[in-house]
Every structure is written in structure tokens, then in C-alpha cells.
Write a protein that binds this DNA or RNA. Sequence first.
DNA 1: GTCTATATGGCGATAGAC
DNA 2: GTCTATCGCCATATAGAC
Lengths: 199, 199
Amino acid sequence: MDSTTEEKIYEAARRIFLLKGMEGARMQEIADEAGMNKALLHYYFRSKENLFKAVFKDIFTKFFSKVKDTIFSDISAKEKLIVFIDNYINLIQANPYVPQFIINEINRDPKVLKTLMFESGIEPQKILEMFFNEAQASNLSKLDPRHIIVSILGMLIFPFVARPLLQMIYFNDNQEAYTEFLNERKEIVKNMILKLIEA
Amino acid sequence: MDSTTEEKIYEAARRIFLLKGMEGARMQEIADEAGMNKALLHYYFRSKENLFKAVFKDIFTKFFSKVKDTIFSDISAKEKLIVFIDNYINLIQANPYVPQFIINEINRDPKVLKTLMFESGIEPQKILEMFFNEAQASNLSKLDPRHIIVSILGMLIFPFVARPLLQMIYFNDNQEAYTEFLNERKEIVKNMILKLIEA
DNA sequence: GTCTATATGGCGATAGAC
DNA sequence: GTCTATCGCCATATAGAC
């Protein structure tokens, strides 16, 4: 651990905010996690709001930019969707708290989200256009790609954000069984989407 | 408004908690909403936690029991799924904040959920068994019904909990356009599930 | 039962010594 | 830069008059 104090604070804040959200997190908790005094957090970031925004921006943009490469790669739209599903599941499994974190905060304060979308280079409209164009030119389903994307995201994200409930009622709170269930969903969702887009 | 004071508090708490959650809600806010003094809330419910638990239990059980009748009605499993989708969409549209509310709280404090499942008469296992049995006896897909249910719920709930984000990036923040999008999903999801379960 | 006033504690933020 | 001590505020909760 030869990282700077500022980096240590940042990493600690990332972990705590991800687990508890802006409202649930405590500055004292972040200081403990970083192994230092609470006053240092204000010395480096001035306010909790500032610290949170820095963390949120980082998590949000990293999560979204990860799928960009797939979307604009040189394969067919159908293949893109399949690769996208694979990559997205891997991404969520590696960051299981991110979806809940983002959903919480976009509902708590949508303004943060709006400024963020302008600042970062994320252009969801371009992704839509790409799908529209490819759908016109190929034998792909003429279904509005927004419905396809929302369906995929919903099917993938829901079992993570509703995990405590689903794991309890369907798997007797068996953690391993639920992880296995999540793994099965890779193929399930891929097959569903394939059936859907084969017009 | 000839309801009792306790009922007024309860209704006000229901509205505020639903919008802001346990952590976001303020007792003063609930008192204002109920049109009375803050001290009365403690007189009738002793603590915020108590008041919240009463509200959560009510919202949770009502929301879940609404679909029970469909599930155990005298029609085929395939028809049940279709009717279930219809009823569930109507239920969410009439209570658009409930899914986010429940997801928030089951992640914040899963213990509340556990005691609740025991106390209430909700038996998700029976619903599963029913689907398992019907799947064996008919030409229904042999797919694990848990995957079907999670897929349906995800596709239906996600556009509500991620609304601020999706409405902004896909519909230029046009509220009417997004409502129309939500209406379209009724048929979309039904068709997807039909394709899926036709083995 | 319903109100006003106040106690109590926790949290974000700052002052100031080192 | 990093710490201790403390301020100021706000939220839950209670005491006590009416």
C-alpha cells in the first residue's frame, strides 16, 4: 500500500458508498476504512457531497464505457447482442453492487446523472441508431431496439438487485445455489434474446 | 376525511415512506403530510422504526397477495403466465414506486423481510411447485420456472426502477413518450414469454 | 389526545495545535 | 499533512402543560 492519502480515501469511499449509498454511508466509516482521521476527508474533498460525486462519476462512467467496445466492434448486430450479454453478465458479477448503487442514486437525485451524461463521452443515442440501421439492413427483428435492450438489462440486473428476496424464497437462503442460478442465466438470457430477434 | 388520527398518520407515512424510503423520510415530513404534530407520531407508534415496519408489512403483503388469485385459478399454466403478466403490469402501473421501495429495503435490512415472510401467509414455494407439476404434465417448456419468473419480473420492473436514466437517454426526458413505451411493453413481454415457453 | 418545548445523540464540518 | 477537540445543525424521541 504505497498509494497516496487521497487515493486511500478515494478507494475507501468507493467501497463504502457502493455498499451503503450516499445517505447510508458515514464519513467516520469511510475514515475507518481508509485507516485515518475523519478530518482528512474534508481536507482533501471538502464535503461528503464532493467525495460522493467523484466516486459516482467514476463508477458510472467505468461501468458504461466497458460495453462500448463491444457495441461498436465489427460484427453483426445479432452477434453484438450475444457478446454484449456475455460481457455484461461478467461485468455485473465482478461488480455485483453497482446496479443497485446506480439505481438508488438516479432515483435519489437525477440531477447528478444529467450533468454526468453531458460531461462524459457516453452517447446512448449512437448505440440506438446503430441498432436501428442494422435492423433495417438485415433480417433482424424490426422490434424497437429499446425494448430489446431494456429486456436484456432487466433480466440480467433484476436477480442481483432483488437477491436477498429471491435467494430466500426460492433457494432457502443457500448462497451457493443462488450463485449457480446466476450462472445458469447466462445461457437462458442468450437463448431468449436469440428467439426474440430471429424475426 | 373522517378517519381516525392513527389512520391519518398511517396513510401519510405510507405516502412519504414509499417516495423516500426509511432513511430518506423525516418524521416532521410525515407529520406535515398528516396535518398534525410530530409528537403524535410517537404517541401512536412509539418510534420511526415501528411506523416503518407497519407500513412496509402492509405494502409488501398487499403487493404480493394481489397475484395469488391468478396463480391458483383454474386455467392452464401457460394462460396463468399471460394473465399474471397483465395483472402484474397493471399492479405496478397503479403503484409505480412499490418495486423500488421493496428493493431498497430488502437490501438495506434483509432481517425485516425474513420475519415478514414467516408472519404473512405468502408461500412462494407452492407457486413454484404448481409450475413444476404443470410443466411435467403438459407440453410446457421444461425450463426451470424460477428463470421464467425472474425474467418476467426483471423485464417488467426494471423500466420502472431505472426510469430516470432510461427516460433521459432514450426519450429526451419526454414523460409521455416514456409512458407510451411502458404501455408497449405489455405485449412485448407477453410475446417474449410465449415464445419462451412453447417448448 | 394534542400541543409546545426540550432533551439527547449523531453527523458533517471546521479550528487550531503539532 | 495529520491529528484532537469542538461547533452547529438536524433528527428522533420525550416531558409536561392543557
